[in-house]
Design a protein around this nucleic acid. Structure first.
Lengths: 131, 131
DNA sequence: CCGCATCCCGCCCGATACTG
DNA sequence: CAGTATCGGGCGGGATGCGG
């Protein structure tokens, strides 16, 4: 087990840093946002998350879930049955976050093409300057 | 100069990945969001950014500015004077992003204490289980 | 089905020194 | 003032294997 959790350096060391980053770092991991989105529609099981989030490893899913649970964004329910059944549900505070994320994803989808084009244009410019 | 820019692995390699992450990764760097917020009130000079963003190094400020410019989020203006004067301004698309970020920062500030408490509670629980 | 432990690589980013 | 070049550490995260 890694001794440090995802991105807690800033929050733990620089106490008087911008509170925005302090909290955003908790969600800045590669998979956190995807998990929150995937769990937004209701309780989901571990395997469901694993299948719905493309490319995530079992290890990273576990770590991400633990961190989100630790921050009070996910509620974990274990059913004492065989085979084991565990499901995860967004807490009210996480549902609020999901609303904010919708604003971001909307922006992302609206400007996806524009940004991509800007990158291409910038790169060919740089290439022209060099050549 | 590093050959690769901030967080372009996902976008460049896994093309058919979630468009949300593809774009969010462009803003997921440690300093990108801070720069966007710091530049939101109007054109700012390099040194102004350097002073207003606590803890940022000259190198990282430069890299972050270049990447944001590359993605069409910042407009860079160079004035041919001595001493050199350069300022940076959010593009319309970045101003939209800033609006979305306000939603996020609002959430962060509202739930800062709650999240911190949740962490502490979770950690002392884990500690009790171990001891 | 759900999860933890270990190994290891690659990139982010900080420190430092140098330029027009 | 506004950058650029180089070096190196540290951590995120992927691959793999084991346990309840």
């Amino acid at each position: 087990m890694q001794t440090s959790t995802l991105s807690d350096r800033t929050a733990d060391i620089v106490v008087q840093a911008c509170p925005v980053r302090e909290v955003l770092d908790r969600v800045a991991g590669k998979w956190s946002i995807m998990v929150i989105i995937a769990a937004a529609d209701g309780p989901v099981r571990f395997t469901e998350l694993e299948r719905s989030i493309d490319g995530i490893s079992r290890r990273m899913l576990t770590l991400t879930l633990r961190n989100l649970e630790r921050d009070g964004l996910l509620h974990r329910t274990v059913y004492p049955v065989v085979p084991p059944r565990v499901d995860y549900e967004l807490t009210p505070i996480a549902r609020e976050l999901h609303e904010s994320l919708l604003s971001l994803t909307g922006w992302a989808q609206r400007h996806r093409a524009t940004i991509s084009a800007a990158r291409t244009a910038y790169d060919s410019r740089r290439l022209a300057d060099a050549g």
